[in-house]
Design a protein around this nucleic acid. Structure first.
Lengths: 153, 153
DNA sequence: TATTGTTATACTCTATAACTATA
DNA sequence: TATAGTTATAGAGTATAACAATA
C-alpha cells in the first residue's frame, strides 16, 4: 500500500485522498461518511423503512437507528409512520436534506469533470476500460474467496 | 458515489471492494485496517518511537498507544526503551510480525499483478498515465482548499 | 519550558442479543 | 411465529486535555 508506485497503489492513494478530503468537508455540517452514505442511499430509494436501508447499506438495523437518530437531530431526515404496517417507520429527506443532496450531487459531478479534465483526452477511453477490467477481475476474485470460504463451513 | 458509472465512480467502487475484502481477510488474525496500516508504516520506517509513527500516520499519539497495545498483545510488535532518551519507547516488529509483513507484501504484489493482467496490454500505459494525472490534480485541489481555509483562519 | 507516552473522557461506527409492539 | 425498531452491551478507531517523567 505504500511504496513501489504501480497503478494499483496509485488507485489506493487516490481513494485515500478522497476520504481525507471528505472528512474535512464534513466539518461543522453534522455529517460523517456513514451518515452521508445513508443520505445517498435514501436519495436513491426514496422514502424507505429502516429495514430497507439496512439491507441496501449492508449494515445492521441497530446501526440504522443510530444514523437516523443523528440525521434527524441535524435536520436532514424525518421519521413518519408507515401507512399500513404499524411496526415500521418511514425515513425520508427533509427539505433541507433535499437541498443538501442536490448540492452534493452537483459538487460530485463537478469534481468528476475536473479530475477527468486532467487526463489526456487520448487516454480517457483506455482509462475507463482499464478501470472496468480491474473492477470486474476484483469482483470475481472476491466471489471465488467467498465460495471457497463457504465450502469450508 | 452511487449512480452514473463514470471512471471516478468506478474508482471509488474498486476502493470499496478492496476495503470489504481486507476486512474479511483480517478475521481471526487480531488485525484490523488501522493496525495493519501501522505495521506497513513500521516496516517502512524500521524501529521507531511512537511519536514518529503518529507523525507518519497523521493520527494522535494517544491513538498510537492503543494500536501498539493491541499489536503487542497479538504478538506482532514489541516495545523497548530508547537507548538515549528515557521518555521515548521504540516500537519494532517481532519475528512473527516480520513474517506477517513479508506474507502481506507478497500477497499485495500478487494481487497487483493479477489485477493488471486483467487490463488489455494496449491500455496499460494510458491507465497508468490517467491515474497519475488524476492523483496529481486531486492533490492540487486539496492543497487549494487547505490554502483557502488557512486564509480564513 | 518542551516533549514522550499514558490516563481520563468522549464521540462515532459497528455488531449481537434481548425486548416490545405489531403482523 | 416472524418481523420492525429500540434498548442494552461491547469493541474498535479517533480526538482533546491533563499529567508524570524526562529532556
Amino acid at each position: 500500500m505504500d511504496p513501489t508506485s504501480n497503478p494499483l497503489d496509485r488507485l489506493l492513494e487516490i481513494s485515500e485522498l478522497f476520504r481525507a478530503d471528505m472528512a474535512r468537508a464534513f466539518e461543522g455540517t453534522g455529517l460523517t461518511a456513514a451518515r452521508t452514505h445513508l443520505l445517498w442511499v435514501l436519495a436513491g430509494l426514496g422514502p424507505s423503512p429502516q429495514q430497507a436501508l439496512a439491507g441496501a447499506m449492508g449494515v445492521s438495523a441497530r446501526n440504522i437507528t443510530g444514523l437516523v437518530d443523528a440525521l434527524e437531530a441535524a435536520g436532514y431526515v424525518k421519521r413518519s409512520p408507515h401507512p399500513t404496517d404499524r411496526r415500521a417507520t418511514i425515513v425520508s429527506l427533509t427539505d433541507a436534506g433535499e437541498v443538501t443532496m442536490s448540492d452534493m450531487a452537483r459538487d460530485h459531478a463537478n469534481l468528476s469533470t475536473n479530475l477527468l479534465d486532467a487526463v489526456d483526452p487520448a487516454d480517457r477511453a483506455a482509462l475507463s476500460r482499464g478501470l472496468d477490467a480491474i473492477a470486474t477481475r476484483l469482483r470475481a476474485l472476491i466471489q471465488e474467496e467467498a465460495d471457497a470460504a463457504a465450502v469450508i463451513r
